[in-house]
Design a protein around this nucleic acid. Structure first.
Lengths: 123, 123
DNA sequence: ATAAAATATGAGCAAATATTCATATGAAAT
DNA sequence: ATTTCATATGAATATTTGCTCATATTTTAT
């Protein structure tokens, strides 16, 4: 049960349903979890990164191959791979000069599938 | 099978594995689907919107209540609700002056759950 | 009719982000 | 050793985006 007083400092409207607000407040996950969740989806929220991940569903690929495939600069791809690496969505192995990237998460496909279901249903 | 010639115009590197590139190219979903998918995740990729959606998991709420709950401006919430509305993630009903928002997609929770699994596993 | 309240919306601003460009790094080949 | 090639990275730029502020809209109450 919440004993928090409702905070009026920033909000510019009067509370209409204080009971609802308090009940919902208690049901919410912690701030940190919600932030982390948004961060994950932010990584998915870019066409280039989505394309890279879909490519890696099919096969591990080196940076150059991905650049050619997506018709983009090697640099642009490298930058995005860094984002994906930091999010631990891809991993890599080096073979001489060439760096091969591949997926590092079995849930990506499931997340994407749910997203696609949403899209196709709302058409 | 793809008969496309690899495009060198924008990419600045030589193709290393043309066979892989062509095979992956054939396996990729259409440009439009990938774009739409990124758009959906872009909507999820913001803390405020994630919070709003989590709040609506618990209960339908009016704009003012959400603003109080999240300690944000009514205007800010209204703007974000518009984004969620356009993505068909929320719906609303009017009751006099008050507009009640609620979830408009049964998959949201599943998408979030997959995202949370990813987070908790990588800790 | 007028005022008040809940919500929506457009313009402006600040912060975040994706790409480009130039260059650095590291490994193989000569 | 030097050159070449694949990749990484920092700085700069352009675009996008979330919020604020002011104001419009809509509905209820007086």
């Amino acid at each position: 049960m919440s004993e928090n007083k409702v905070d009026f400092e920033r909000c510019d409207c009067t509370v209409i349903h204080e009971d609802v607000v308090n009940a919902v407040r208690d049901s919410m996950p912690h701030e940190e979890s919600l932030y982390d969740l948004a961060e994950v989806f932010k990584v998915f929220g870019d066409t280039t990164r989505i394309k890279i991940l879909y490519a890696l569903f099919a096969s591990e690929m080196c940076v150059c191959d991905i650049a050619v495939l997506l018709n983009m600069t090697q640099s642009a791809i490298s930058h995005q791979l860094r984002v994906l690496k930091q999010a631990r969505l891809v991993k890599y192995r080096k073979e001489g000069k060439v760096v091969y990237y591949s997926l590092d998460d079995e849930h990506i496909k499931q997340i994407f599938d749910q997203g696609l279901i949403h899209i196709t249903e709302k058409k």
